[in-house]
Computed example of a mutant assay.
Amino acid sequence: MGQVVSTPETVGFLLVPRFSMIAFTAALEPLRLANHISGRQLYRWVLLSPEGGAGEASCGLRIAVDSAMDAAPSLPTLIVCSGVDGHWYDDRRVLSWLRRRAAEGVELGSVCTASHILARAGLLNGYRCTIHWENLAGFAETYPEIEATGELFNIDRNRFTCAGGTAAMDMMLYRIASTHGEKLAVSIAEQLLHDKIRQGSVRQHVAIQPNPGIDREELAAAVKLMQENIEEPLDLLALSAQLGQSRRNVERLFRKFMNCSPARYYLGLRLQRARQLLCQTKMSVMEVAISCGFVSATHFSKCYRDYFGVAPRNDQSSHRVRHLIEPVRQMAGVK
C-alpha cells in the first residue's frame, strides 16, 4: 500500500558532464508516467547543471536545464546523474554543494557512475550502495570502507543508488510503489514495456554472466567462481572440485561453449579486471598485478600486452590523457 500524498514531490536531477542519457531518462520517465496514468501531478522535477548551461550527455546530446545548482530551489530529493569518467569527476565546488544539501537533510540518489561522486564527497560513509558492474572493482579499491553490493539498486535510509541503464527504472518504480502503491508502479512498467519490476537485491546480471552465450548452469557457475577468485586464482583441479565436476568435464564445457580452455578464459577475466583498475583507480601497475593474481609485474605486463596489444603502463597513461583532454575538446566544439 502506498502513502496518501497531497502535494507533488519535487525531484532534482544534477546533470554532471558526460552523464549517461539512458540512466537519466530511465529515472525520469517513470515520474512523468506516474503523473500521466494517475491523472494527478504526483511529481515535479528540476534539471540542474553545475554552471547552469545545457547538460551534455556522453552521447553528445545537450539537455536544457532549469538552473545552475547554486540557484536551485529547495529540493527534498536530488539525484546525481553521471556517466563516462564519473570515477574521475572531482569538481570541488560540486562536492561542497552536495555536502551542504546533505546537511540540510536532502535525500540523495545516484545513477550509473555517480556513486563515485557521492563517495568522493564523503556522503556514502556508513551506507550500502551500488554502481555499474564495470566500475564496481575500481570503486571497491578506491573506497574499501564503503559497502558496495553489486546489486541493481540499493536504498539505505536517505541514500539511494543504482547501477545505471535500466536499473534506474527499477529503482524509481520501487520508490513510486512505496509512495503511491504497487498498482501504479505496475501500470507504469506496462507502459514502458518493462515486463517485470526487478527488486534491488537482484545481482547485476552481467557481473555473474558476462557472455550472453552462457546458458548452461554448470558453465555459469564456473564463471561466477572465477570472478569471485580474481586476486587468488584457483587452479583447474580446485575449480573443478568446488563445482563438483571432473576436470575433463569443465574443460569440455569451455571448449564447446567458449571456444577456449578454462585457463584462457580465466586469464581474460583477470586481465579485464586489471584494465578496469588501471583505468579507474590510481593504483600502480604492480598493485593492479597483485590484485589480479599475478606474481610479478613482468609476467603481468607480458600477458596484458599479448591480450590487449598495449603495455599496461601505456594503456593507463593514454586513458588518463583522454580523461583530461576530452572535456577540453568538447568545450572547443572539436568532435
Rank of each mutant, 00 (worst) to 15 (best):
G165F: 09
T113H: 08
G55E: 12
W88E: 07
R157T: 13
G138D: 09
T161D: 07
I79D: 03
V106A: 11
L184Y: 01
I63Q: 13
E145A: 14
C81I: 14
G52Q: 11
H87Q: 07
C112I: 14
V65H: 06
A119Y: 01
T142S: 09
Y127M: 00
T113W: 13
A177K: 07
T149S: 07
I79P: 01
G122K: 08
A114S: 15
D90M: 07
L108M: 09
A168P: 01
T113D: 10
R93Y: 02
N135Y: 12
R92A: 14
S82N: 02
A57Q: 04
S178A: 06
V84P: 02
A64M: 12
P50Y: 03
S74M: 12
E134P: 01
L136E: 08
E104T: 08
L48H: 10
W88R: 14
M169G: 01
L108I: 02
N158F: 11
R93Q: 12
D85W: 09
V84M: 07
S110A: 15
A57R: 01
L152D: 00
S96Q: 13
R157Y: 14
L75G: 00
G86R: 03
R44N: 10
G83C: 12
E51N: 15
A68K: 08
T113K: 05
G138T: 08
L124Q: 01
M171D: 04
W97F: 08
N125D: 15
T166P: 02
F153I: 05
L108D: 04
P73G: 01
I146R: 00
S178C: 08
G126A: 00
L152V: 01
T77P: 13
A103N: 06
M69W: 07
S178Y: 00
C81F: 07
Y89K: 12
I155D: 06
H180T: 05
E141Y: 10
R157M: 07
I131A: 03
R62I: 01
D91L: 10
E51D: 15
Y174M: 10
N154P: 04
A68V: 06
D66A: 10
W45P: 12
F139V: 04
R93D: 09
T77Y: 06
E104L: 11
R92P: 12
T179D: 05
L136Y: 04
E147W: 04
D85E: 13
V94Y: 02
I176Q: 03
S67L: 13
L184C: 08
T179F: 03
I176W: 01
P50E: 04
L136Q: 13
